[in-house]
Design a protein around this nucleic acid. Structure first.
Lengths: 164, 164
DNA sequence: TGACATTTGTTGCATTTGCAACGATACCAG
DNA sequence: CTGGTATCGTTGCAAATGCAACAAATGTCA
């Protein structure tokens, strides 16, 4: 009974969720206003900017979206002319997905304000705090890495070594 | 073109979202397995444990869920017998929502493992890191507090003073 | 009092989500 | 080869979500 002073507002998972939702929602104004881009589409496009030609599965493994979500995001982007789907020559099952000229143009307009907003967030933190935040997030991930019931982390979300 | 080395995996909003989703999903196994409770229902119940009798609007303002979501969560919980809805006597518009005996019982079973999981996460961090994490999250919130385009923060998510 | 604005909770509706099942292609063992 | 298995992308479907519209109750001000 004494343990009943449970404060949701102090519960770590809740606090992280609230912060995350708030930031995501604010950020989606940036890429949602410029074009009717959703979070899934945003992630797909950003990933394509780095990995020129990838399959659905690659994207799925890299940007924390399940397969159907990637598939539908790619379909919408293809309809919008922002992305090109080509069947791979070597493996008929695979798709080769890439940004079109238009997609690159859109991303070029969206990326700067998105980065600016990230900078705005980071500037509120001291360099030490920024470093500590990375450490903390990595440690929390590691707790879940050793937890068989937690969903595995995607390869790209593992910490970067210096030698990359 | 030189600015194209944009790494989604290093983008702060993305990193926070991934961590948050991973934790939320893991946590939902705890209160999802015990009873078919969703995140919204979980938040409503936890809030009710603290504030005995509240309206939909109160909950909506406190636990970061929009009104329809609260309304439907309360309906589901009422159907399940975990929550009681009574019309307020003084103001016919308001509802007086509270946990039933059964709801209290369920919460009593769910809360300990949920807190245990939080502890497991926190134990991965040093006391200094825990304090820094709070500082960091508060600073990020403050950036958005001064941003007219960001969604306002709910009252209960403001930092606690010592005098509480 | 009576017209008008506000607040409260609910509902409609289009969209998104998550999971499982599915056809199609590629791989592999005998 | 050939039958079985694994992988890839898509689709079905039930549930959840977000936003706006809504009816009912209250407040306000002439």
């Amino acid at each position: 009974m004494a343990s009943s002073a449970f404060e949701l507002a102090e519960f770590l998972p809740y606090r992280i969720a609230v912060l995350s939702e708030r930031i995501s929602r604010r950020l989606s104004l940036i890429y949602g206003a410029e074009a009717g881009i959703t979070v899934a589409e945003w992630r797909v496009m950003v990933h394509l900017a780095r990995c020129r030609e990838v399959s659905v599965r690659e994207i799925h493994n890299c940007v924390n979206l399940d397969k159907p979500r990637v598939s539908r995001a790619v379909s919408r982007l293809t309809e919008a002319g922002l992305v090109a789907k080509t069947g791979s020559a070597t493996d008929q099952r695979l798709l080769s997905i890439s940004l079109t000229e238009e997609g690159q143009g859109l991303l070029a307009r969206i990326l700067p304000p998105a980065r600016a907003y990230e900078r705005r967030l980071l500037q509120a933190l001291s360099p030490e705090e920024q470093a500590t935040l990375s450490t903390i997030m990595e440690k929390l991930h590691q707790v879940m890495d050793t937890d068989p019931d937690a969903r595995p982390r995607s390869r790209l979300d593992l910490p970067r070594d210096a030698a990359e």
